[in-house]
């Protein structure tokens, strides 16, 4: 076998491996898609993910949900819930990243008493299961009268997004040469100006990735949302979706339709940002 034949064979094998993996990663998605566009839910198990009796009814039913208000007016419920999800997720990401940026910068650049201890503590908090801190958090929100509000939800989500963003951004800031800020300071900037005008722009990709992750955690969360929210109009989309498949009454077709509508925005955002991911992913974020 010549070298070029060998190369060809290898290349075929490589593509085969990748294609198998692609099939594995796309299959569940296609399955959901086909279910969403199927007119009839058949009892038979299907292998090929193609819709039977293609229709948009399911999507229409999910998206078109409305609600009659006390005063008799109609509101577009799904629109309201979509807005909730988006507002809460963006607010979580903005709050999380905004608080984490200066904190992470200090951890990356300054020497101060309590630095090591602080980082260790923050890392340790990540090991405590959220299940147990959810109830106290719930009580704190209750005293703040924030249950059932978007603010309350944002604060809850911020409690996970802030530590995570601090880890991510700290390693991103550490990767930026100190020379840059020093050059700026020699050029006449204060430390804060150097941070604002040099470090932040340079760290933009990492900030974008962190923002994305914070957004995704909030957008995808459903357990807290399901416990904290008691008003249909305050629901976020995961809660809406979860209701389609109860124990006694599973509407997989509606669930699938909803899943598509819900996933699209976050997937679009994900693909906007993922280019930065190899560079911005601070996998080193966990070192204490």
């Amino acid at each position: 076998m010549t070298a070029s034949q060998r190369e060809l064979l290898e290349s075929i094998a490589a593509h085969a491996v990748i294609l198998a993996a692609v099939a594995f990663s796309l299959y569940p998605i296609l399955w959901v898609v086909s279910l969403a566009f199927s007119g009839s839910t058949s009892l038979e198990a299907q292998v090929m993910p193609v819709p039977t009796d293609p229709t948009l009814d399911n999507i229409r039913e999910v998206v078109g949900s409305t609600r009659t208000e006390v005063d008799g007016s109609q509101i577009w419920l799904f629109g309201r819930q979509l807005l909730n999800s988006i507002v809460v997720s963006i607010a979580t990401a903005v709050v999380g990243v905004a608080i984490a940026i200066p904190t992470a910068y200090a951890f990356a650049r300054f020497e101060f008493i309590g630095k090591r201890g602080g980082m260790r503590l923050l890392l340790a908090t990540q090991m405590f299961p959220a299940v147990a801190s959810a109830v106290p958090l719930f009580m704190i929100l209750e005293t703040l009268e924030l249950l059932n509000t978007r603010t309350g939800l944002v604060l809850c989500y911020a409690s996970t997004s802030i530590p995570f963003a601090v880890f991510q951004l700290r390693s991103a800031f550490e990767a930026i040469p100190t020379d840059l800020e020093e050059a700026a300071m020699v050029d006449g900037a204060t430390r804060f100006q150097a941070f604002l005008r040099v470090v932040l722009p340079v760290a933009r990709p990492a900030i974008a990735v962190t923002f994305l992750f914070a957004f995704m955690t909030a957008y995808n969360e459903f357990i807290l949302a399901a416990t904290l929210l008691n008003d249909e109009r305050a629901f976020t989309l995961p809660v809406v979706l979860q209701r389609f498949i109860g124990e006694y009454d599973a509407r997989w077709d509606l669930f699938a339709a909803g899943a598509i509508v819900v996933s699209l925005p976050v997937m679009l955002l994900f693909y906007q940002v993922q280019r930065h991911m190899v560079a911005g992913l601070g996998a080193g974020g966990v070192k204490g």
């Binding site: 020379d179 840059l180 050059a183 340079v202």
Partner: peptide, 9 residues
């Protein structure tokens, strides 16, 4: 600076 420290953005 030795690394020149040009602002990359």
């Amino acid at each position: 600076f030795q690394s020149y420290a040009l602002y990359p953005h």
